[in-house]
Design a binder for these strands. Structure first.
Ligand SMILES: [Mn+2]
Ligand SMILES: [Mn+2]
Ligand SMILES: [Mn+2]
Ligand SMILES: [Mn+2]
Lengths: 220, 220
DNA sequence: AAAAAAATTTAGACTAACCTAAAAAATATT
DNA sequence: AATATTTTTTAGGTTAGTCTAAATTTTTTT
């Protein structure tokens, strides 16, 4: 039996909330993430459990089964590939693509995904720096640092964002920070942890802690 | 209020069955086309009428309102643009794209359609020769001939198909007939109206009436 | 014009995905 | 350990889109 749009979204969200160590996800957390009520979540959990997609014992929280994990990763793969398409081929900004990809990710057809993947040149990362699972369902999170963990003088590469909100991405655009930028922290203010950052060796920018906390970087 | 996947499909089908002269469409015809029962159609018609998308009087059949026509054409535009994308960019065969386009056509976002249109170079026709409505909703059916209306010795251009079934399209592939082929009828058999056709001035092919009836052509 | 047949609508149900309110279980606080 | 609070589940409804069976209207045939 095919999984519905709604079921796929639940699985994707359970995957995200469960993290890499597959910790139990609570009913309330799912209600929050799906913008529904806890009672509705309980209904859906019973259904997903019946379909063998999640491990569910009443009051215990849920985790994905192997089968559920497979579905979740396939949806994530489609989401991220479509985001690449929208940015690379259609010229959308990285702040504009998430909602459209939320729709496209539910279009069935493996053939479509695989051809899209090839058309895009088998990209490894989406426009936000998130890794794209391969066709076999392997998804390896690169372990990036958060900019707050970087000391003064270190040069790092901007590799991704934690916050995907359009407002944050637009803020980065205005600051001239993009994926691949070289960032060097030149100063950290003790009081509020705000920082000065040199971008690609040229202009220096003032960055709040709020921004630093959402920037994923890599030592070179 | 947004139109659902199902509502959009009803409108598209009413548009198709209503033809260019906007003739009334019957409940049974819709039940047939939507693969549902007449009773279900009646329910939906009441809903579409309430939304002002169709003209509906009980037992009288339905036609699209201006508003309904606009929605139908927008869905057709998306369907055909996505078919072009699937064939031109992803390398699908013209026999493989319809079902995927049935899904993609319901993805919302005008921005997406318009950027896709530009990316494809504003194509005028889809892979089956069907005209693509423009962004303003203008859809003009070119008035093609059916091959059965062409006499012996006339050279015509293959411009489209009436039957969109994969099996028919695959049959044309095997026969070497594609959009743009030059066809010349060299012989018609009185008995069964089967014909011999020269393709692009070279090989001659035997064609059944069933095939001739589904080929749209143009005098040159 | 009456009867028969066909088309359409109405009545009453079902499932998926949601809801609110109430009950029950788990967790935290005294 | 008892009580209070929070979390989760159950109970009972709603809407969209579907169904079957029965009633009604229209069309066709006699
Ligand atoms: Mn996204
Ligand atoms: Mn992304
Ligand atoms: Mn099609
Ligand atoms: Mn087509």
């Amino acid at each position: 039996m095919q999984n519905s749009f709604t079921e796929e979204n639940y699985l994707k969200i359970i995957h995200a909330l469960s993290g890499r160590d597959g910790v139990e996800v609570s009913t309330n957390a799912l209600a929050e993430s799906t913008s529904t009520r806890a009672a509705s979540v309980t209904d859906m959990l019973r259904k997903l459990a019946d379909k063998g997609l999640i491990h569910y014992k009443k009051y215990q929280g849920v985790t994905l089964t192997e089968a559920g994990e497979k579905v979740a990763i396939s949806v994530i793969r489609k989401h991220r590939l479509w985001e690449v398409f929208l940015v690379e081929k259609l010229g959308f900004g990285w702040d504009e693509v998430h909602d459209i990809a939320e729709e496209l990710e539910h279009v069935p057809s493996n053939e479509l995904v695989e051809r899209l993947d090839a058309f895009l040149g088998h990209p490894r990362f989406d426009p936000h720096g998130d890794p794209i699972p391969d066709a076999k369902g392997n998804l390896t999170d690169p372990d990036y640092l958060i900019l707050t963990d970087v000391g003064i003088g270190e040069k790092v590469l901007m590799m991704g964002v934690l916050d995907h909100a359009p407002s944050f991405l637009q803020h980065l655009d205005r600051s001239g920070i993009t994926l691949g930028s070289v960032l060097e922290i030149t100063e950290i203010n003790e009081y509020d942890k705000s920082a000065s950052v040199r971008i690609n060796g040229s202009q220096t920018l003032f960055i709040s802690l709020e921004v630093s906390k959402n920037l994923l970087v890599q030592r070179r």
